[in-house]
Design a protein around this nucleic acid. Sequence first.
DNA 1: TTGAACTTCCAAAATATACTGAAAGTATAA
DNA 2: TTATACTTTCAGTATATTTTGGAAGTTCAA
Lengths: 166, 166
Amino acid sequence: MELHEAKDKFIQAWGAFGSQWGINRSMAQVHALLLVSPEPLSTEDVMEQLNISRGNANMNLRALIDWHLVDRILKAGERREFFQAEKDVWKVATHITRERKKRELEPMVRFLGELKQTSGTNAETKAFKQMAADLHDLTGRIDAVLERSTRSDVQWFLKAASTLLR
Amino acid sequence: MELHEAKDKFIQAWGAFGSQWGINRSMAQVHALLLVSPEPLSTEDVMEQLNISRGNANMNLRALIDWHLVDRILKAGERREFFQAEKDVWKVATHITRERKKRELEPMVRFLGELKQTSGTNAETKAFKQMAADLHDLTGRIDAVLERSTRSDVQWFLKAASTLLR
DNA sequence: TTGAACTTCCAAAATATACTGAAAGTATAA
DNA sequence: TTATACTTTCAGTATATTTTGGAAGTTCAA
């Protein structure tokens, strides 16, 4: 497979993969494009290479910066900004994990905790509270594992875990 | 909080949470409804309680059965089918994890493996192949951890992991 | 202070996704 | 075999999300 073809397929695949996980296709594609570009790209470059509008490119670049997946680069003598993806995939995974954990998982854990205080003592209420408690426990454990696995040394964790459990 | 209110909030929250992770809102809500219902429900019950159409209820119930999250129940003397959610949240988590791993993660790991064979030896190609290799390694490790953690004894794994890493 | 080069915003349009409801299909009992 | 009770399908509709492109905003050099 040629480099150009491989990059292209990667951008498509990353976009499709992202959208299965609730990340919009363009954002994932912009990210993929920057991942495979050796040099930082300008907004214009992104627009051209992905055939998307200025507004769309801008919005997704900002979102990626917000997620710490992309850095703004200023070149001497150039007014416009360039964008460069973080290439260390472990760092990328860590940032994505921590952000989604904070934005989505933690609020759910909190909510499930509140449900455990539902009033009532009849069988149906008890069953509901048990379900909420189990789910709270489960999500709490997942949260804890993710917290640990992204704290300081991701690589060590995944290596250790996959070895330990062999 | 009253039982009825708590159930309702749970259904809404589960729907919203699901859609953040690429699962459609109705499917997540049907699942939540069945999770909080002590008795199996009929298609009609689901339609009424969630205010959705017959087609929608049917489609999502089938999808949930397909994901092994819901069982069809036949009651003696009743012609219609009833539906009951698997209430063991560890089992639920295991099924969801394994299904998504199989449908989404594994194909991506395979694809990244293929990218490593991109032809070319110049700096840009090398950098690309390195990136693909890193991503392949990362997703492969995640895959391995998920495989282990859902194999036979989930509870043991998460307990062990969260203790080990304290 | 102006104008050029660039970024950001946002209402409207396009697209993708989900939902509806009626009709067709299927199984069972009489 | 027919009527009935239920399930499934699917074309059309509705809703939600994403994208566009022009206008407004910003920055900076002259």
